[in-house]
């Protein structure tokens, strides 16, 4: 290993701050952040800013095209599409955030512990993760929701289940690399418990990988939730969900194509925004690009 001169290196912001600064200067990330903020704001503020009640049926205004009165038109029951989209966003975000949060914690802990312990235990755990991975995630989600019933909490469980194995893998690889680093050995030599080494020293060092993964998988979770509702396994009607609205619109595609197009675009934009943010974060935290 080469060495540096005996000088104090110029102070540089550590880890996350540096990554965030770098991500902010990337136009893709900036656009992604704006998209995500707009959609999240619309979803959070839906009860106060949505022009209509999402469940209000108005038989005199059925299948209206977009107009000044109904910005994005109305569906076959005369419900306002814009209002339903804003409320549907709440479901998408709740389910996806809940599922990814759960998967990151459970999967991250599995990967962390398995990678740290290593040996046969690690082989066994990773074999189990491989089995989970060998189910196509949509199929696994489909079956779990179908068996448990289409409730919001079950959607969270189903989507979390599909994401646990990837998180375990993402947490495990850097854990295995880190446990060979001398600072882990130093901690053991100083009498630190395994728990302390694992959670105080290894965990903070793998957080950026897990967070980047989380953003990217949030996009996948939004897509899977929408897909499940599209198939008819989402939160039950009359609750508005983006996937369900797309499905309703698809049934009326000849009469009112906008019914399917607007919810489809909403899903597309949210997934795109999340992918842009995740991409930027990954580039900013990628050790290969970090020194550029």
């Amino acid at each position: 290993m080469s060495t540096t001169q005996e000088l104090v290196a110029p102070p540089a912001p550590a880890g996350w701050k540096r990554a965030l600064g770098k991500a902010r200067s990337n136009p893709t990330t900036a656009v992604g952040v704006v998209i995500c903020i707009i959609i999240m704001a619309a979803a959070i503020l839906a009860p106060w800013v949505a022009p209509y009640d999402p469940a209000d049926q108005d038989i005199f205004n059925r299948l209206q095209p977009p107009s000044a009165e109904f910005w994005l038109g109305t569906d076959q029951f005369g419900r306002d599409i814009l209002s339903r989209l804003m409320w549907g966003g709440r479901i998408s975000l709740t389910v996806s955030l809940g599922a990814i949060f759960a998967a990151a914690i459970i999967g991250g802990a599995i990967g962390l512990i398995s990678g740290y312990i290593g040996g046969r235990f690690d082989l066994f755990v990773m074999q189990v993760m491989d089995v989970l991975l060998s189910f196509p995630s949509l199929i696994l989600g489909l079956i779990v929701v179908a068996l448990l019933g289409p409730e919001l909490i079950n959607l969270v469980v189903a989507i979390a289940l599909t994401a646990i194995a990837p998180f375990a893998r993402v947490a495990r690889a850097p854990t295995m690399a880190l446990k060979e680093r001398a600072f882990v050995e130093a901690g053991r030599a100083l009498g630190f418990s395994h728990t302390r080494v694992l959670f105080r020293h290894i965990l903070p060092n793998i957080m950026s990988e897990v967070m980047v993964m989380g953003t990217l998988w949030l996009a996948t979770a939004v897509r899977v939730e929408a897909s499940l509702s599209f198939i008819g396994l989402g939160v039950k009607p009359p609750t508005a969900t983006w996937g369900g609205m797309t499905r309703d619109g698809f049934e009326n595609i000849l009469d009112a194509p906008w019914l399917a197009v607007f919810p489809g675009l909403a899903i597309l934009f949210l997934v795109l925004g999340l992918n842009m943010v995740g991409d930027g974060l990954r580039d900013a935290t990628d050790p290969k690009l970090r020194n550029e």
């Binding site: 290993m1 550590a14 880890g15 680093r181 001398a182 600072f183 030599a189 009498g191 903070p204 060092n205």
Partner: peptide, 24 residues
């Protein structure tokens, strides 16, 4: 007992770049 013994004997490592937790 092991923890107490660890206090008595310490180690200094070869690679100064990996012996400190980068986030601490």
């Amino acid at each position: 007992a092991l923890k107490a013994l660890r206090r008595r004997m310490q180690i200094v490592f070869q690679d100064p770049y990996s012996s400190l937790d980068p986030r601490q």
